[in-house]
Amino acid sequence: MNGLLHLNKPAGWTSRDAVNRIQRLAKPAKVGHAGTLDPLATGVLVICVGQATRLIEYVQRQPKQYLATFRLGVTSASDDTELELTAVPDAPIPTREAIEAALPQFVGEIQQRPPAYSAIKVDGRRAYDSARRGDLMELAPRPVTIYSIELIRYEYPELVLDIRCGSGTYIRSLGRDLAESLGTGAVMSGLVRTAIGEFRLETAAKVDDVMAGKLKDFLQPPFTALANVPRFEVTPEQAIALRQGKFMELPELDRDTPEYAALDLEGHLVAIVIPRASVWGPKLVFAPG
Rank of each mutant, 00 (worst) to 15 (best):
T169E: 15
W280H: 02
T42Y: 01
P258L: 12
A91F: 06
L7S: 05
Y58H: 14
I274P: 08
V273F: 13
F70T: 14
P92G: 10
A186Q: 03
A127I: 10
K216N: 14
E180P: 14
V44Y: 11
K30T: 05
G185E: 02
A277R: 14
P39M: 00
T184E: 03
K121N: 09
A29K: 13
I149C: 04
D38K: 07
I93C: 11
D256R: 13
L37C: 05
E138D: 12
Y117D: 14
G281L: 08
R54I: 10
A261M: 07
R16E: 05
S78T: 14
V229Q: 06
H6L: 15
S181Y: 02
P143Y: 01
T69N: 06
G12T: 07
W280P: 00
E158S: 12
G183N: 06
C165K: 02
T235V: 08
P115K: 00
P143A: 02
L67Q: 02
I120G: 04
P141E: 11
Q112W: 11
R61L: 07
D129I: 15
E180C: 15
G185S: 12
R61W: 11
P258C: 10
G281I: 03
P251S: 07
A287C: 12
G245N: 02
E180I: 15
L182W: 00
K283L: 14
R61C: 08
A212P: 07
L250W: 13
Y128D: 04
A91L: 10
D17W: 04
P92C: 12
Y147M: 12
R126I: 15
I146W: 14
V270S: 03
I272A: 06
T224N: 09
Y154D: 04
P92K: 13
I240N: 05
G43E: 11
Q105A: 11
Q244L: 09
K214N: 09
I152T: 07
R172G: 05
F232R: 14
A261W: 00
R126L: 13
E249M: 14
P288H: 08
R172M: 04
Y58N: 15
K283S: 09
R61F: 09
V122Y: 02
L161A: 05
P222H: 11
I47D: 11
L72R: 01
L191K: 01
A11R: 15
F247Y: 03
A34Q: 10
C48I: 03
T184L: 13
A179M: 06
A225R: 02
P275V: 03
D17Q: 12
L67N: 01
V160W: 00
I47W: 06
G12L: 01
S76M: 06
S189Y: 00
M188H: 00
E198M: 06
D177I: 12
A127G: 09
R164I: 03
V285W: 13
G185T: 12
S130L: 15
A87Q: 09
I47A: 06
T42F: 01
R126W: 04
R133S: 07
G12Y: 06
P141A: 13
D90Y: 01
D208M: 04
I163G: 03
P28Q: 05
N8Y: 09
L55R: 05
L265R: 07
A18N: 08
R255W: 14
E237F: 15
L250G: 02
K214A: 11
C48E: 08
V49G: 09
L215W: 01
